[in-house]
Lab assay of single mutants.
Amino acid sequence: MKVIFLKDVKGKGKKGEIKNVADGYANNFLFKQGLAIEATPANLKALE
């Protein structure tokens, strides 16, 4: 799953980066902790 990092995550990505991560990692950790959002077309456009 492609995500946009909202904060730096050690060993995974930095704020503003768009990366592929495992679905479970994104859903169970990144999204719940507010560290990333899904890289949907709307979210990508808002990032610009």
Rank of each mutant, 00 (worst) to 15 (best):
M1C: 08
M1Q: 04
M1N: 03
M1T: 13
M1V: 14
K2G: 05
K2V: 13
K2E: 10
K2M: 15
I4W: 02
I4G: 01
F5D: 00
F5K: 00
K7S: 11
K7L: 11
K7F: 12
K7C: 10
K7M: 12
K7W: 08
D8C: 05
D8V: 02
V9Q: 02
V9K: 02
V9Y: 04
V9C: 06
K10E: 14
K10D: 12
G11M: 05
G11W: 08
G11Y: 07
G11S: 06
K12G: 13
G13S: 04
G13T: 02
G13Q: 02
K14F: 13
K14A: 09
K15P: 05
G16S: 03
G16Q: 02
G16V: 01
E17H: 04
E17D: 11
I18G: 02
I18Q: 06
I18V: 13
I18E: 01
K19D: 04
K19N: 05
N20S: 13
N20C: 14
N20T: 15
V21D: 02
V21Q: 01
V21A: 02
A22Q: 13
A22F: 10
D23I: 15
D23W: 15
D23S: 15
D23T: 15
D23Q: 15
A26N: 06
N27K: 15
N28L: 11
N28C: 09
N28M: 10
N28H: 12
N28F: 10
F29H: 10
F29T: 08
L30N: 01
L30S: 00
L30A: 02
L30M: 03
F31V: 08
K32R: 11
K32I: 14
Q33Y: 15
Q33V: 10
G34K: 10
L35F: 11
L35C: 03
L35G: 00
L35D: 04
L35N: 03
A36C: 03
I37W: 05
I37Y: 03
I37T: 07
E38Y: 05
E38P: 14
A39N: 01
A39M: 06
A39L: 07
A39T: 02
A39R: 00
A39C: 08
T40P: 02
P41K: 11
P41S: 11
P41N: 09
P41W: 10
P41A: 13
A42R: 08
N43Q: 07
K45M: 13
K45I: 12
A46L: 15
L47M: 11
E48G: 12
E48P: 09
E48Q: 13
